[in-house]
């Protein structure tokens, strides 16, 4: 099975994140960069499927040069090889542009199964897996908390408020995963060293046959028109218990419709 896992490098959620004043895109230099956390679950699932059914795991990442760190991390966990789509013209691409670019690469390298984290911690739209499936003309199975493959049949548990739905499709397909699906492995010492020697193919827009007029900030269909820093947290309310503390606490919660 030819498995491709899409991986995104994002600013660490533990560091102070901000947008750039000039064009309202993410200020990537202002924060530590890490692999998108949900993508680690996607990599783990890809590795487990390849271990169970045979085949290869390829990492696909679109991002600046620095994204090689995230790619190496994914390779050190055990993925076989990687494709890095890197081109200055991609900077500021919105979802439409990103999905078009990734779909073009996937069309070129081929796949039986594409696995993604269900959202990234920076933009958090959660729409990329669906767009990608649409552009590739294959089924999408989203929010998977369990994946089973049997020949060309794929079945997942789709996480829902009430439990889960069982969703089936035929490969090739796109799957997005949630963190309940598995426990991502740590890289091994030997895995980290071996990852340095694994093949990473870099592709430009031209290599992937992507029309520059479909990507980048200038061609984005969506636009950030304004943004503001999150206001500092307000001080909490201190309830002094004068025998009626329970009633006061309940009143506080009821006022906010928690109870």
């Amino acid at each position: 099975m030819n498995i491709v896992v899409c991986v995104k490098q994002v600013p660490d959620t533990w560091s102070e994140r901000t947008l750039r004043e000039s064009d309202s895109t993410l200020d990537r230099d202002a924060a530590d960069a890490v692999i998108n956390e949900l993508d680690e679950y996607a990599i783990e699932e890809g590795l487990r499927l390849a271990e169970a059914h045979g085949g290869e795991v390829t990492i696909l990442s679109m991002g600046p040069d620095r994204a090689t760190e995230a790619i190496r991390k994914a390779l050190s966990m055990g993925a076989d090889k990687a494709v890095h789509l890197v081109d200055d013209a991609l900077a500021g691409s919105d979802l439409l542009g990103t999905s078009a670019a990734l779909a073009a690469v996937l069309g070129q390298i081929g796949f039986d199964l594409v696995i993604l984290g269900s959202e990234s911690t920076d933009a958090r739209t959660g729409a990329l897996p669906a767009m990608l499936a649409e552009r590739l003309g294959v089924p999408q199975l989203s929010y998977a908390s369990k994946v089973e493959v049997d020949g060309s049949a794929i079945s997942i548990h789709r996480l829902a408020d009430y439990g889960y739905d069982t969703v089936e499709a035929t490969l090739p397909a796109v799957v997005s995963v949630v963190e309940k699906i598995n426990e991502p492995r740590y890289p091994t010492f030997k895995g980290i060293m071996a990852a340095k020697k694994k093949p990473v193919q870099t592709m430009s827009l031209a290599d992937a046959g992507i029309d520059p007029a479909t990507v980048g900030l200038a061609n984005a269909a969506s636009e950030v028109t304004g943004w503001a820093k999150r206001p500092p947290r307000q001080a909490g309310t201190i309830v002094t218990d004068e025998g009626d503390g329970g009633a006061k606490a309940a009143g506080f919660l009821a006022e906010r419709k928690f109870i």
Binding site: Y186, P187, T188, F189, I192, M193, K196
Partner: peptide, 14 residues
């Protein structure tokens, strides 16, 4: 060397 960075970094992360 790079191996030291890998091993010590992994130990620190775990």
């Amino acid at each position: 060397d790079e191996a030291a960075r890998a091993a010590i970094g992994l130990a620190a992360e775990i």
